[in-house]
């Protein structure tokens, strides 16, 4: 059987990493006293290779001896300015919350996650926004994901998730009243769905001092070092998580 070769994405990452390294080495030599050095302006590579698909991954296999029929991939790279970087990464900054990989790594296969990324969906918040705007059918058509798998992923995407719980430091975020235990900061995603979430710590309701999609600041009515908590964002969406404040934060 023919070897599938190397994912094209991996080749491009290896190429850009080598160019970064060349640029850093030349800059270092200039700082070390070399009177003249070079900055990369642009670079093109005509790569003689065979191109194939394995699932949704584009693979390349370098042309071998006597391979007159190999394809040529023309890669052209150029340096860009900081404003251009910022312009191109703006969408990444606006991606709040977990990536689809973090949220669905155990629910969707690598191939299905890649198809979502190809459709430009990298975060759960993007997926939910898109679902509200266009509906699951359109996302399924663009990403070529089976609609039932996508619906299951979207249902999972709507559920609240607690990633960790820490004691809130005395940073003025919560008014300190003598005798009251320190508030808790609950981090995760989908922690608020329109209205105020309800939080139970060890089965007892805790006051929510501040709520955002990714963080809740809650005031337990007694000091609890470890136990379980429940966050309910809507009558049918809740999550339970255990926590231990005595553990070192990771």
């Amino acid at each position: 059987m023919d070897e599938p070769g190397l994912p094209l994405e991996q080749f491009i990452q290896a190429l850009t990493s080598q160019l970064d390294r060349a640029q850093e080495t030349m800059a270092l030599k200039a700082r070390a006293g070399l009177p003249l050095t070079f900055a990369v302006k642009d670079l093109t590579i005509d790569l003689r290779t065979h191109v194939g698909m394995s699932g949704s991954v584009v693979h390349i296999r370098p042309a071998g001896p006597g391979d007159a029929e190999a394809s040529v991939i023309h890669l052209s790279l150029t340096t860009i300015t900081r404003p251009m970087i910022e312009e191109n990464t703006q969408s990444l900054e606006s991606e709040k919350g977990p990536s689809v990989q973090e949220a669905f790594g155990d629910k969707l296969g690598a191939d299905e996650l890649r198809r979502l990324e190809w459709a430009g969906i990298r975060s759960v918040s993007q997926l939910r926004e898109l679902q509200k705007d266009t509906g699951a059918e359109v996302i399924g058509r663009v990403s070529q994901l089976p609609i039932d798998r996508l619906r299951a992923a979207l249902a999972a995407a709507a559920a609240p998730h607690v990633s960790h719980v820490v004691a809130a430091p005395d940073d003025g975020a919560a008014p300190a009243t003598p005798g009251t235990p320190p508030p808790l900061r609950i981090r995760g995603w989908n922690l608020r769905d329109g209205g105020e979430p309800k939080v139970l710590i060890g089965g007892r309701p805790a006051a929510v001092l501040h709520a955002s999609d990714t963080e809740l600041l809650v005031q337990p009515d007694e000091h609890v070092a470890a136990g379980t908590l429940e966050v309910r964002t809507t009558p049918d969406l809740s999550v339970a998580a255990s926590f231990d404040l005595t553990e070192e934060p990771t």
Partner: peptide, 12 residues
């Protein structure tokens, strides 16, 4: 394969 690259000289 074939590489074409241009570099700009800068003062060290």
């Amino acid at each position: 394969s074939r590489l074409t690259a241009s570099f700009h000289a800068v003062q060290g």
